[in-house]
Design a binder for these strands. Structure first.
Length: 483
RNA sequence: GGCUCCAUGGUCAAGUGGUUAAGACAUCGCCCUUUCACGGCGGUAACUCGGGUUCGAAUCCCGAUGGAGUCACCA
């Protein structure tokens, strides 16, 4: 009997979403939607100090823009709310469940202060490690009561045995067994009454009926503690899907802390939502066939989480750029123009046909900011060297170029029709009657009107956009330089 | 350092005992083209090492090595 799949994305509102989080959100979404299940959004705002103003809005916006629409969440009650953990704290949910554990002897009050905890610290390889010594587990009942009555600050800790092992099962990694001695008595409830991430996760995932817990590989090592919690409660464990890490080029885990790109950073850098989603989906997963370009809908159809990889993947900006270029080429012209226009305006202030200029760049860029530099010559003819007029393959040099430009000048002065077609007609007629090669004529012309060896579009396109007056001025300037 | 995970070209990645070890990005070359780009064609480039098991291992087992993650009143 197949249970209904329910997954959740449970971010903490601490800022922008980096791509690792985005991919976790995506996989959770795909796993649920592939089977027609539910996708929930739960806000894990249990750390008072790390709250960032507006972070929830960023999460909402990011999920909406990428199409990862949740079925239940803070704004969509599915009957298992609230979906914001701070509200669940107020409702007393975590305290209630913590007390159940205390009654069972699976958890205990701990009154140790910072100083005592500090003394438990050891430094190994430059890293601070604290292993709690179960000091408060052995407190006499009367002392606990007295402390509580006196209002002494406390935390609640999980009581893990020092012997034996704990085994949990991950869909991707199989059974993983860990010695219990490695599992320290983690804090369930903090002294401010808020739960820790770990405790809140277990309680909420259970209460919200989550069937598949999708999260990053960095949580693999804390999973056994969860198992102990589920067992302590007598709850059935969900399926775990620990996604492989996404790393930087140095194989280090992507993190905001290290200044790695967030989704919004990428958008600001000129990437397209669909391309980011598509690329990130392929980091750790591949379809049965060899396709690489997928819409979100296609991903929903094709995604099989059993094909998720186990090894970490390096985030390759190069390939993202390529993929982004593919998306830009496929992009709806109107949508393209909306994104392209601001980039065009960065370098063009003259009343030229900005649409035509933008269109020239559509197949030539990977990200939108690539637009500006190659089109700057439209605004103003750059200073250039006459050596540009020399091109071996086109069989042209300054002397030939001068002859050609002088030849064409009167003709172009007489011409009124500066449309692509008009220019093509008269110039190709000239080419024919002059007996010259197409390239030999067009090369100098393009150099004259653009001042650079490489341009988006050819001489016709450029002249059409520049218009008669400016085109002629640039050709005269070319003649002047060559004379 | 303990524990855990991982290991196919520079990167992503297919591959589940017998393949000329796919494909994509990047890179290089050629073609197309008035340049560039697009597009097309082609090249270089990989199973970490050592033991097993087997008629036969990239594929299964063990070990080594390497890398990563984690060891907070952060998530």
């Amino acid at each position: 009997m197949m249970q209904r799949i329910r997954t959740r994305y449970a971010p903490s509102p601490t800022g922008r979403m980096h791509v690792g989080n985005l991919r976790t959100a995506l996989y959770a979404y795909l796993i649920a939607k592939h089977e027609g299940g539910d996708y929930l959004l739960r806000i894990e705002d249990t750390d008072q100090e790390r709250q960032v103003e507006g972070a929830v809005e960023i999460i909402n916006r990011t999920l909406e823009k990428t199409g990862l629409i949740w079925d239940e969440g803070p704004d969509k009650d599915g009957g298992v709310g609230p979906y914001v953990q701070s509200e669940r704290v107020t409702a007393g949910i975590y305290m209630e469940y913590a007390k159940k554990l205390i009654e069972k002897g699976e958890a205990y009050y701990c009154f140790c202060d910072k100083e005592r905890l500090e003394s438990l610290k050891t430094v190994i390889d430059g890293k601070e490690i604290t292993v709690y010594d179960k000091h408060c587990l052995h407190l006499p009942k009367e002392e606990i009561e007295a402390n509580l009555a006196a209002g002494k600050p406390f935390v609640v800790r999980q009581n893990t045995p020092n012997e034996g092992t704990t085994t949990f099962t991950d869909v991707l990694y199989g059974d993983i067994t860990v010695p219990n001695a490695e599992l320290d008595d983690m804090i369930l409830l903090k002294s401010d009454g808020f739960p820790t991430y770990n405790f809140a996760n277990v309680v909420d995932d259970h209460l919200m009926g989550i069937s598949h817990v999708v999260r990053g590989n960095e949580y693999l090592s804390s999973a056994p503690k969860y198992t102990r919690l589920y067992q302590a409660f007598g709850w059935e464990e969900p399926q775990y899907v620990h996604c492989p890490l996404i790393t930087d080029e140095n194989k280090k885990k992507l993190s905001k802390r290290s200044g790695h790109s967030s989704y919004e950073d990428l958008v600001e850098q000129g990437f397209v939502d669909e391309a980011i989603v598509n690329y990130v989906a392929l980091l750790g997963w591949s379809p049965e066939d060899n396709n690489e370009i997928f819409s979100l809908q296609e991903l929903v159809e094709k995604f099989d989480y059993h094909r998720i990889n186990k090894s970490p993947a390096v985030f390759d900006m190069n390939k993202l750029r390529w993929m982004n270029g593919e998306y830009i080429k496929m992009m709806d012209p109107e949508k393209y123009y909306v994104r392209a226009l601001p980039e065009v305006k960065k370098v063009i202030t003259k009343p030229l046909d900005l649409k035509k200029i933008a269109d020239l760049m559509k197949t030539r860029i990977e990200v939108f900011p690539d637009i500006a530099e190659p089109i700057a010559f439209f605004e103003e003819l750059p200073a250039y060297d006459v050596s540009l007029y020399t091109h071996k393959k086109m069989k042209t040099d300054p002397e030939i170029s001068l002859a050609i430009l002088k030849d064409m000048l009167p003709m172009l002065e007489a011409q009124e029709d500066y449309s692509l077609e008009g220019l093509r007609a008269s110039i190709s007629a000239y080419i024919e009657q002059s007996g010259r090669k197409t390239g030999q004529v067009l090369w100098p012309l393009r150099i004259a009107v653009s001042g650079q060896a490489m341009t988006p579009g050819g001489a016709y396109e450029i002249m059409e956009i520049l218009g008669k007056e400016e085109s002629l001025a640039r050709i005269r300037k070319g003649i002047e330089k060559l004379s």
